[in-house]
Design a protein around this nucleic acid. Structure first.
Ligand SMILES: [Zn+2]
Ligand SMILES: [Zn+2]
Ligand SMILES: [Zn+2]
Ligand SMILES: [Zn+2]
Lengths: 121, 121
DNA sequence: ATGAAAACGACAATCATTTTCATTTCTGGT
DNA sequence: ACCAGAAATGAAAATGATTGTCGTTTTCAT
């Protein structure tokens, strides 16, 4: 693991939720530590490939990242305040398997996200 | 309704599914009709406010639009050859509603896509 | 110590989207 | 038809996130 990736992971941990690349950069440089924005982007990309961070999009299209447990799950995200619920298990897993089976696809992965308005917004 | 908005609606209808602003522009200018990209963006924004089009984001963040009321469906995509199956209905719709209900989210939309290897690859 | 390979970061490039602003088209009253 | 003001248009510039380039620095095994 690259040390820049570790620094990014730590700042994401500190952020506690979703943060954009620029916000991660500010979190690190705000402490006096020095790191380039380019390195942040590269670290986030690696972490994404290693499935250590989740990626979503704000409404304006900006990518936001956060630490992610290794267990497979889905997200229910409030469009307004960003509150996020992680959804584990459920009928979607069976549905995905059933669809893959019906069309004879193998090694099928899936992504699914729900976006709405939470009860407090 | 502005006439530019109508032209955009028609090309979205012709597209049959999701299309980006640039794709809409190409659909119109490709026929010899002339319209500015700026106008496309403005028309899509109005149509979005009037709730006549839905907007989603591609993985790279680009906004894609489709007619509201266009039949909702999901995709099963072969990672190797690109073959795509459209999936209508199924357990995922109930799952999404159930999850939204469980967490008291309102106006919940969802996206879900399956990626695997088709029987011919 | 030395050289190769990986990581780094300043800067430029790219690309979608927005803003600006001058020009064109529409509209209503005369 | 004529004309002024309003609305719409679109070319070009601005913006902002993300990616590419490339020279420099760090790491690491020999
Ligand atoms: Zn909320
Ligand atoms: Zn799942
Ligand atoms: Zn295939
Ligand atoms: Zn669905």
């Amino acid at each position: 693991m690259k040390k820049s990736a570790i620094r990014v992971l730590q700042s994401l941990q500190q952020a506690g939720g979703f943060a954009s690349a620029q916000e991660v950069h500010q979190l690190i440089t705000g402490k006096g530590d020095r790191i380039g924005l380019t390195t942040i982007y590269r670290a986030l990309q690696s972490l994404q490939e290693e499935k250590l961070v989740d990626v979503l999009r704000r409404e304006d299209g900006e990518a936001i990242y956060r630490l992610c447990g290794e267990a497979h799950h889905h997200h229910l995200v409030c469009k307004k305040c960003g509150r996020t619920v992680e959804i584990y298990g459920g009928a979607i897993e069976k549905w995905a398997d059933a669809v893959a089976d019906e069309y004879s696809f193998r090694e099928v992965e899936h992504s699914a996200d729900l976006f709405g308005t939470c009860s407090q917004c």
